[in-house]
């Protein structure tokens, strides 16, 4: 028997749950191995005192009021707030886009091509979102199904807002407000993905 095998058996031996044959093999090894003798003695001498340790220890003060205060603060800005933010985003996008297109200055529309304006705004965001989506995919199984549903639903909402802003900017590439609107959509998408990835890693 190697020391590694012996070490794997020590806890069961001390607990008295090791099969007789394995127990004999361990005893034979320990009889000729000083290191494993020490480990067996340490495990044996600590088992009782560890079992006697209290499982509960009350904190010196009452922590509940502070925890309670943080709950009220924390509960609201969860997924519900993100969902509301996403819905608000698409609603604002629709209204603001319509207004902005309505007062579009035709002379500025030719300053840059629509595609170039979109590329300029989206540079970096798309890659960042792809990386986060890949990370989220890896941690997906650790998230509850309803959490995934909420994330995906909100990503859809944001994607619609982004698509609408993108289409508007392509029509009116010099419009700074549309650029800001498109950038806001991407920032929301990245923030949502970052939060989802963080959640999947913490669980």
């Amino acid at each position: 028997m190697t020391c590694e095998s012996a070490r794997n058996l020590i806890d069961s031996y001390v607990a008295g749950t090791l099969a007789a044959r394995d127990a004999l093999a361990l005893e034979e090894h320990v009889a000729v191995c000083a290191e494993c003798t020490i480990d067996l003695a340490a495990a044996g001498s600590l088992a009782g005192p560890v079992r006697a340790l209290p499982r509960r220890m009350d904190p010196p003060g009452d922590l509940w009021p502070a925890v309670r205060q943080r709950l009220v603060r924390k509960r609201t800005p969860g997924w519900g707030a993100l969902a509301a933010a996403a819905v608000l985003l698409i609603a604002l996008t629709s209204v603001v886009t319509a207004l902005l297109l309505d007062r579009r200055d035709a002379t500025t529309a030719s300053l840059a091509s629509g595609a170039a304006a979109v590329r300029m705004v989206e540079a970096g965001y798309v890659e960042q979102a792809l990386e986060l989506e890949a990370a989220l995919e890896q941690g997906r199984e650790r998230l509850a199904p309803e959490t995934i549903t909420i994330v995906e639903r909100n990503l859809d909402v944001i994607a619609k807002a982004i698509a609408e802003s993108r289409a508007a900017l392509e029509q009116d590439p010099a419009n700074q407000d549309l650029r800001i609107l498109l950038r806001t959509g991407h920032e929301q998408r990245v923030a949502l993905l970052e939060q989802a990835v963080r959640l999947s890693r913490e669980l």
Binding site: P59, P60, G61, L63, R70, L71, K74, R75, A144, E146
Partner: peptide
């Protein structure tokens, strides 16, 4: 460390509150 343990205990319960819907 007792003081740190108090802070961590608070964090655990706040986190539990946030994650409670994932407990199945």
């Amino acid at each position: 460390d007792s003081r740190r343990a108090e802070e961590l205990t608070q964090d655990v319960f706040v986190r539990a509150w946030e994650r409670l819907s994932s407990f199945r």
